[in-house]
């Protein structure tokens, strides 16, 4: 049996009376792309923040590479990285300077080679000397992805990574991520509101609604279980149910 790279057990997060994440358990295998799906407020981002050690869980355990995140934060986070539409990079620094800082923060060797490689991979080598403040939102998204891939992580958390990209670049990013998975065996936890992207990217999908896991399986299994035409229909059904209850 393959040991999971990520094991989440009975994870819960409460903010006062509000339960953002409610007793969820799941795991991720090496090299797996796991989609985390759900309407706004379902608990996807809070879950990712807990996995990154940015929010302390109210209950439950998070283990990565067989280690408990609370006790082995430094070891785990040096092998993990993330990208999100909702983060930025220091605006007054150039793209290259930002990537060098990240590389030094993670203690990477051969920084120049890695920076060159990741800039080429994401087709942003021409932005190397551009001050981050002057990037478009699509360019900034690619730079934050470059930051995430630069450290060659074993687990990558991606929170809506293609949200601000045009279809052509988004497709290239998806291909790049699949290639990264194939070549380095990186495991990816992925959130997106683009259902076709979810179906294309994910080996397995976890559907969150109001902090709870309401469905888990391949896209086809989930569609069949809810008796809908496609994943988008499932999403709409659950999102509307969720809003009616609120």
């Amino acid at each position: 049996m393959v040991t999971p790279v990520l094991q989440v057990t009975n994870l819960r997060k409460r903010f006062g009376d509000f339960t953002a994440v409610d007793d969820i358990s799941f795991s991720m295998k090496p090299g797996e792309i796991l989609g985390l799906l759900g309407p706004n407020g379902a608990g996807k981002t809070t879950t990712i923040h807990m996995l990154l050690g940015l929010i302390t869980p109210t209950a439950g355990t998070i283990r990565m590479f067989g280690l408990d995140l609370r006790e082995h934060r430094e070891t785990i986070l040096s092998q993990v990285n993330f990208s999100s539409t909702y983060i930025s990079m220091p605006q007054s620094l150039t793209v290259e300077e930002n990537l060098w800082i990240v590389a030094r923060l993670y203690g990477l060797a051969e920084i120049a080679r890695r920076v060159d490689l990741v800039l080429e991979q994401l087709e942003i080598a021409d932005l190397r000397h551009k001050v981050t403040r002057h990037l478009s939102s699509g360019q900034l998204t690619r730079v934050t992805l470059a930051k995430a891939l630069l450290t060659e992580p074993k687990i990558l958390f991606l929170d809506e990574p293609t949200a601000s990209l045009d279809p052509d670049i988004a497709q290239k990013i998806r291909s790049l991520l699949k290639e990264a998975r194939r070549s380095s065996g990186v495991s990816i936890l992925y959130t997106s509101h683009n259902m076709r992207e979810m179906e294309e990217m994910s080996d397995r999908i976890i559907f969150l609604q109001r902090g709870r896991i309401v469905a888990e399986g391949t896209a086809r299994e989930i569609v069949a279980r809810f008796g809908q035409a496609d994943l988008e229909e499932v999403f709409l059904k659950l999102a509307r149910e969720s809003r009616h209850r609120t």
């Binding site: 050690g53 940015l54 986070l77 930025s88 923060l105």
Partner: peptide, 18 residues
């Protein structure tokens, strides 16, 4: 504040930085 203005705190504290 520089980190706060740059929305960079998440990048920092999701890294191995203590």
């Amino acid at each position: 504040l520089e980190e706060l203005w740059a929305r960079n705190l998440m990048n920092l504290f999701a890294s191995p930085l203590k």
